[in-house]
Design a protein around this nucleic acid. Structure first.
Length: 135
DNA sequence: GCCAACGTTGGC
DNA sequence: GCCAACGTTGGC
């Protein structure tokens, strides 16, 4: 199983929206690097939901519910379905991530503009620990 | 409000 | 194919 981090502006689509909808199609990604990660996702993979802008914190855990499918008419883009698993009891702020030496190599910190980034298993464990999540 | 990062575009 | 200019995005 692989781990990911997906970023969204909470004003546009946030964790509460995802819970209300019981899942959503994560579409509209128009960056090739991010697209390539989406195509690697498999059902059962886990992903952190990260709120950008004002909040700047990881707020929940999702699962990938279905492998990618084409997004748009030109065949260039891809989307996956994601579903909520659990809200993080303690949101993990960007500042917390940056200040934790164990997360030094976390991809979203290195490539801050990428909206879809992979998370290493050991980094996932740390993020779950910081967030007070069950697993 | 500004700046850094970086992807895209267009002229050559 | 190169690269400068420009636009977008997110964080500070």
């Amino acid at each position: 199983m692989a781990y990911w981090l997906l970023r969204s502006e909470p004003d546009v689509y946030g964790w509460d929206d995802l819970v209300r909808d019981k899942g959503t199609e994560w579409d509209g990604v128009r960056n090739y690097t991010a697209r390539n990660f989406i195509k690697e996702m498999q059902p059962g993979d886990r992903a952190i939901f990260y709120h950008s802008n004002k909040e700047k914190a990881a707020v929940g855990v999702m699962q990938i519910a279905r492998a990618w499918r084409p997004d748009g008419d030109d065949g260039k883009w891809a989307s996956v379905r994601v579903e909520p698993v659990e809200r993080l009891p303690t949101p993990v702020s960007l500042a917390t991530m940056k200040s934790d030496a164990r997360l030094e190599k976390l991809e979203v910190l290195r490539q801050s503009r990428l909206s879809v980034t992979p998370v290493r298993p050991e980094e996932w464990e740390i993020l779950m620990e910081l967030g007070g999540a069950g697993g």
